[in-house]
């Protein structure tokens, strides 16, 4: 982590960047995001296994953008989000300095986004075995059971949209739920409204989700809403050979390959 701090201080001193986005210790003993603008403050940066928030979410926030060019402390989940955002034209290579962080906190230098893309090839974006078991259990339920399961799971949601605020891929200025001409998704947190919101959220993340679990971490009710995106990721991998984020334009849902399976069309 010392290397990361040193580099952050250099960048701020030389004014190569105006702000360093990283993790610091929060008031309740849990890490939180830090926005460091002075080189003297870099010592407050930390990195440990609890640093799970996806900092890439701040890259598209107007409040952070107006601070000037950022550098970002980037463990695996942030790196994935950066590549996905770049493939969706949301960030440019020259607008950002990436301070890659290995799982044990060491600085990794990336010359450009392609180097990040290459680095990510070694880390399979798979749903882990334990989660896979749960997902299979859900998938094997009968239609009625599954309907009941999701209705119960989502009943707790009161539409605070913390999941949306935490997701690095939810960067739209005006979310579809706030579109009211016409109002496709009901505003109220009733059963149907909740279901529609979460299905829409999952569909909007199809082929884009970086599997960082930020949405689940942010949910004050601890709803397993990431199961929906994970199921989608599982399908993407099994049905279409999706291996993870890439810089190329387009995503799984909007493009086709000639060898894509079409066995669902009958």
């Amino acid at each position: 982590m010392d290397n990361v701090k040193k580099r952050a201080a250099e960048l701020l001193k030389s004014e190569a960047v105006k702000v360093v986005i990283g993790y610091t210790m929060g008031t309740n003993g849990k890490p939180r995001a830090a926005f460091i603008q002075n080189a003297e403050d870099v010592d407050s940066l930390i990195f440990n296994a609890q640093c799970v928030q996806n900092l890439a979410v701040y890259l598209s926030k107007a409040e952070i953008k107006q601070l000037g060019k950022p550098a970002i402390v980037a463990p695996l989940n942030v790196l994935r989000a950066i590549i996905q955002l770049a493939s969706e034209m949301q960030i440019q290579e020259n607008e950002l300095i990436v301070l890659g962080v290995s799982p044990d906190g060491e600085l990794i230098d990336f010359q450009n986004f392609s180097a990040i893309e290459k680095y990510l090839e070694d880390f399979n974006m798979e749903v882990d075995a334990k989660e896979k078991e749960t997902l299979e259990k859900i998938s094997s339920m009968s239609l009625e059971e599954r309907w009941k399961f999701w209705n119960e799971e989502l009943a707790e949601c009161f539409k605070c949209y913390a999941c949306r605020a935490a997701c690095p891929m939810c960067y739209c200025h005006k979310c579809a739920v706030e579109q009211n001409k016409p109002q496709w998704i009901p505003v109220a947190a009733h059963r149907l409204g909740n279901l529609e919101w979460h299905i829409m959220r999952a569909m909007h993340l199809a082929g884009r989700c970086v599997n960082c679990d930020a949405c689940h971490e942010a949910c004050p009710k601890g709803i397993n809403l990431n199961f929906l995106t994970k199921l989608m990721l599982n399908d993407a991998q099994e049905e279409f050979g999706y291996t993870g984020v890439t810089l190329k334009e387009g995503n799984l849902l909007s493009t086709f390959k000639t060898n894509d399976q079409e066995n669902f069309i009958q």
Binding site: E88, Q90, C172, H173, K174, G250, N251, L253, S254
Partner: peptide, 15 residues
């Protein structure tokens, strides 16, 4: 300053 609710992700372009 909004100009459009389009965020320029250009997934439409590929679709």
């Amino acid at each position: 300053p909004v100009f459009s609710s389009c965020v320029g992700c250009f997934l439409c372009e590929t679709a």
